[in-house]
């Protein structure tokens, strides 16, 4: 018997005003899969994420997330937006940001002891317990990114959705973020939006290529031609620190 898909798109189209962003998108993603969403800027990556979260609604077609309508199940998803989305001078501690992942679980005005325990555990998973009391504003880009991953984990999600987790992080810190994600991918369904193809093959089972249409590839299929097809022919590839996934990797 086939397992139930965690996310299922069926002939989904989406348009902003008159401009069609996504056309006839169909795919299924399954539990404990690590999937990477790649594609050029403006190709529809963020739109795809917002459709999964139920923040946008498709013009036609149907979307099922965790067995139901997207907006009905958004609480079961741990979402990490891009870090440029925040006011860096907002006066708030790391712990209080992570605690936001506990909001909406029960009525009441204050966080419970178990909320705090869950937030500290999420910080431990991202290696940030020592920074819990620090102001968000005093952290480096990589640390901030990991705080936002911790906040997504504090939701106790069944599905982790990360929008460009390494976009504004320097290379040394990028390794830390990637290691964190690789650990999480063992026990959760992790969907990551990225523009870095090196990242793709290291720890991902399948790649979702988004450029108005969507194609799903196992990582072993990703070749220079497919990359050119996604990004256009001007792309020059420099590969470094390249590791293949367990399923292997072919080069034409």
């Amino acid at each position: 018997m086939m397992p139930q898909p965690v996310i299922s798109f069926n002939n989904v189209c989406f348009a902003y005003d008159q401009t069609e962003i996504l056309h006839n998108v169909s795919f299924n993603l399954f539990e404990h899969e690590s999937v990477c969403i790649v594609g050029p800027n403006g190709g529809g990556k963020t739109t795809l994420i917002k459709l999964i979260l139920g923040l946008h609604h498709p013009a036609s077609g149907s979307i099922r997330v965790l067995g139901g309508m997207p907006h009905a199940n958004s609480r079961r998803i741990g979402y990490m937006p891009q870090s440029t989305h925040f006011d860096p001078s907002f006066p708030i501690s790391v712990l209080n940001i992570v605690l936001m992942g506990r909001l909406g679980r029960r009525p009441g005005s204050f966080y419970s002891r178990s909320d705090k325990a869950a937030a500290l555990q999420a910080l431990a998973q991202t290696g940030l317990v020592d920074l819990a009391a620090r102001p968000f504003a005093s952290l480096s880009g990589g640390q901030r990114q990991r705080v936002l991953i911790a906040r997504a984990l504090a939701c106790e999600p069944e599905l982790l959705l990360l929008d460009e987790p390494t976009a504004h992080v320097d290379p040394a810190m990028e390794q830390q973020v990637n290691d964190t994600l690789a650990r999480l991918a063992h026990r959760l369904t992790v969907i990551t939006v990225t523009h870095e193809l090196g990242f793709v093959s290291r720890m991902v089972d399948r790649v979702l290529c988004v450029n108005r249409t969507v194609k799903l590839h196992p990582t072993s299929e990703i070749t220079g031609e497919i990359i050119q097809e996604i990004y256009g022919s001007d792309l020059k590839m420099v590969r470094h620190d390249h590791q293949c996934s367990q399923q292997g990797h072919t080069h034409d």
């Binding site: 979260l53 923040l55 958004s74 609480r75 998803i77 979402y79 937006p81 989305h85 925040f86 006011d87 907002f90 708030i92 209080n96 940001i97 605690l99 936001m100 992942g101 909001l103 909406g104 005005s109 204050f110 966080y111 906040r151 939701c155």
Partner: peptide
């Protein structure tokens, strides 16, 4: 807590069901 969350990241707060 809820107003702080709305000020910091309204979209995330909405996704938490607030």
């Amino acid at each position: 807590n809820r107003l702080q969350a709305v000020c910091f990241d309204e979209e995330f707060a909405r996704l938490r069901g607030l």
